[in-house]
Amino acid sequence: MTPGRGRPRSFDRDEALERAMVLFWERGYDAVGTRDLAEAMGIVAPSLYNAFTSKQALFEEAVEAYAQRYGGYIEESLGGGADARRAVTALLSGAARQQTLPDRPAGCLIINGAINHSPAAAEVAEGLRARRAHVAALVERKIQADVDEGRLPRHVDAGHLATYVVLVWQGLSLSARDGATRDDLEAAVRTAMNAWPHPDQPGQD
């Protein structure tokens, strides 16, 4: 008797998604083919398409899983009531930890997932850019609130300072990919935060 189409999948979808996420994290979107994914996930290509529809859909789900499992430090750092300096320190320190996890690829999937991409992957790259832009917007909002409330000098440009923070955040990921250790990244965070403006710092109003 031939099993019906409604039979349950013969693999653990969450486990397969985790494996795909790690492969994308390690190699990036364009460098991973469907055959690579099926092999890493322990399934055959038809099962991949049945469960996830397409490589792009699988990648987008993998990125969301990554954000939930490994990117929680971002919202925790920037979404609470801490002032901008403490929030940014927590953000960068969290990145230093997350981007050097044992038994996981170095760096950040959201930052490294589609740096050099083919035209066919433009939509994928834009989705990652939108996530990075969201982080930048959260940082800028924190900084602007501190300027408005007098915790930072009035001359501080929130957008420019947020750009600096995001450049450091992204640089940590690239350095981790190049072999920097957690200690290296944490030292870089301390150095970066030495440039943070203080309320009593003189400037032009």
Rank of each mutant, 00 (worst) to 15 (best):
D178M: 14
V139T: 08
M193D: 08
A106Y: 09
V168L: 05
A16I: 01
E64Q: 14
A125F: 07
G203R: 02
R131H: 06
A122R: 14
G28H: 10
P8T: 07
G159E: 09
S93G: 14
A38D: 06
E64K: 13
G79K: 09
G71A: 08
V32R: 08
A195N: 05
A136V: 01
D12S: 08
I74Y: 02
L48W: 02
A45T: 14
L161D: 05
S93Y: 10
V124S: 07
A187F: 11
Y49C: 01
P119M: 04
W25K: 00
E186N: 09
V156Q: 05
D200W: 07
Y49M: 01
A137L: 11
R151M: 05
L78Q: 05
E61W: 00
Y49N: 04
T2Q: 13
R129G: 00
I111A: 13
H160A: 15
N194F: 11
A40E: 15
E18G: 08
L23Q: 04
T53S: 14
L185F: 10
G113H: 08
A136G: 12
R69H: 11
A16V: 03
D14E: 15
I110W: 01
R13V: 15
R13S: 10
A137V: 02
D12M: 04
L128T: 03
L37P: 03
G6L: 12
R182T: 10
G80L: 06
D14W: 00
L161N: 04
A120H: 12
L152P: 06
G127L: 07
P153I: 04
L138R: 15
R154S: 13
G94V: 05
G6V: 03
V139I: 09
S47D: 14
L37A: 06
G203F: 10
T89K: 13
S47V: 01
E39L: 12
A114F: 10
S47F: 00
H117P: 02
G159K: 07
G150Y: 11
F24Q: 05
V63L: 14
R27A: 09
D205A: 12
D178Q: 14
V32F: 10
L17A: 11
A95P: 02
R9Q: 11
D157V: 07
E15R: 13
D200N: 11
H198R: 15
G71W: 07
Y29V: 02
G179Y: 09
T2N: 11
A31I: 00
R151C: 01
A90R: 15
N112P: 00
Q99I: 07
G179N: 09
R5N: 12
C108Q: 06
P105W: 03
